[in-house]
Write a protein that binds this DNA or RNA. Structure first.
Lengths: 123, 123
DNA sequence: TTGCTCCTCACGTCACGTGAGGTGGC
DNA sequence: TTGCTCCTCACGTCACGTGAGGTGGC
């Protein structure tokens, strides 16, 4: 018994900024679940649920820069109820990353200031 | 006439968190310059200058998530005196990225709060 | 029936990793 | 001379991209 709001792979890709191929690849390596009753050759069907889950996975991947293997382990562990500890670890990674970005932003601002004063000193 | 403080490729890798292979690959694709007078088969020599430059490239690559091709264009354009405009664009990318991280951090904090209150409601 | 998206191979690509076999400097 | 790091091929790998050829649903 499928939900009414079934999405096709291209719609999922559009909603998550990926491609159908990426979705299939994630299924191949076991990062996304394969629907149990699906006939070989028939269309994959998804729900809003799956879109949400994929979005979370993608943002962890992109923002933390971890491999799909590490991502799979992390997702598996999370569902295994070690949630809080893992959230703490994720938070720490994110905060470290954010500090790097802030440092980079400061450097760029200083660079821009120098570039501008160089320009002014020319006229 | 080389500078006194010459570094070998392994030392550069250590200082930048890469590997010798990565350095050679960046030279292959033209992201790092190849020393002009170097005999084929002889050791590559670097200076602190090169370490600094590589660090900047790596932090742009990792934090912004751009390809080595885009990175090369960006670096080339920068040296071509369009500096300020490009710095603005980099700043914008960084700020967008930082906002994503902040949103993710907020989500995780909310998630942790929910997980904790679930735990408390159990006893 | 016509487009459109979907399907499954299967080979290509990007950014390196990893030996194989050999040479150079403290 | 002995280790260590370096060198150049060249093939392997990860995370997909890109056709080739064919089938399914509004």
């Amino acid at each position: 018994v499928k939900s009414e709001r079934a999405l096709r792979i291209g719609q999922v890709a559009e909603r998550t900024g990926t491609t159908p191929r990426t979705n299939r690849y994630y299924e191949e390596i076991g990062l996304l679940p394969r629907a149990p009753g699906r006939e070989p050759g028939s269309h994959r069907l998804y729900e809003e649920n799956d879109v949400e889950r994929l979005r979370e996975l993608l943002s962890l991947k992109d923002l933390l820069g971890i491999s799909l293997d590490e991502l799979r382990e992390l997702a598996a562990a999370e569902s295994a109820r070690e949630a809080i500890g893992h959230i703490e670890r994720q938070l720490e990674l994110i905060r470290r990353r954010r500090k790097e970005l802030e440092r980079l932003e400061d450097e760029l601002i200083a660079k821009r200031r120098r570039a501008r004063s160089r320009l002014r000193s020319i006229h």
